[in-house]
Design a binder for these strands. Structure first.
Lengths: 142, 142
DNA sequence: ATCCTAAATGAAATTGAATTTCATTTTCAT
DNA sequence: ATGAAAATGAAATTCAATTTCATTTAGGAT
């Protein structure tokens, strides 16, 4: 898994530093949709000298290497999820509480492909997000 | 159209000020996915004393009144579109150039409804976004 | 029409996320 | 082992959005 990152760096003549190794490892260990800060604070426990900036920079590398995917659910912090070694899936997001559910529906997937074709977007690289209000939040006043 | 906003304000015992009228009118006049800054700078030409803060505050009111819908395409500025008097539609966004295309597909819509039901989300309030790479941006180096 | 108070305004300060700058340190090809 | 290119991290900066607060305004009660 890390090898993949190593190869990416080599190929771009970038260096595999202690920090990059630690960040990539931690990122791969964490499941779900995590933000830079979460990553940063967890890393700090083990590597107290690691910089905030370095985490930002490294997550960007992971994104470019197609190990991480960036997503923007809320307009607040960006979130990242592992994409290497994971099956494609889409996301449901509750606009009230921010809860995120992963789902996969092959019919929806097929339709989405057709639409991509129609508008000449690359369907292989798509990310689909449905925002709405989850069961718990329905009926609650705003 | 404005009447709708007026009623909303009354019902909440809020006041219809000159600024709110101007902002709402300008918002309704502008088509597409606009951000607070766009609105602010256009308004300034006609009402040079209007405040940045007031535009932010008023767009929030328009959102609560269900006249505007907030969307977060890029992780940069939030965008708003008119939702009152408009048919439902979804959005295609190019991850590279940021281009936004509106579309409507009834098959996709039907599938989406099923999935909402499955996860107990309210399908009537949904917003769907597909992110990918548009034709023009494909083949371009990052 | 005037009064009064709750609400609104706008400038400035603040917050929060992310990026840039730059002096110092590290990696790794030679 | 060496040296140049790249990386690091603290501090400063940028950018969007929100909060604060002294002043002004809207609009219901009189």
């Amino acid at each position: 898994m890390l090898d993949y990152f190593k190869k990416y760096l080599e190929q771009k003549s970038l260096k595999l530093t202690r920090q990059r190794t630690a960040i990539a490892q931690m990122f791969l260990a964490k499941k779900g949709h995590i933000c830079v800060d979460e990553l940063y604070y967890t890393l700090r426990k083990k590597y107290p000298s690691i910089g905030h900036t370095t985490v930002y920079r490294t997550i960007k590398l992971l994104k470019n290497a197609k190990i991480a995917a960036e997503m923007n659910f809320t307009g607040k912090r960006k979130r990242f999820e592992q994409v290497l070694d994971r099956k494609h899936h889409d996301h449901f997001i509750c606009r009230k509480c921010g809860k995120v559910i992963e789902f996969f529906d092959s019919d929806l997937e097929r339709r989405q492909e057709k639409i991509c074709k129609k508008y000449n977007f690359d369907s292989k690289q798509h990310q689909m997000q449905i925002f709405s209000i989850c069961g718990k939040c329905q009926g609650k006043g705003k």
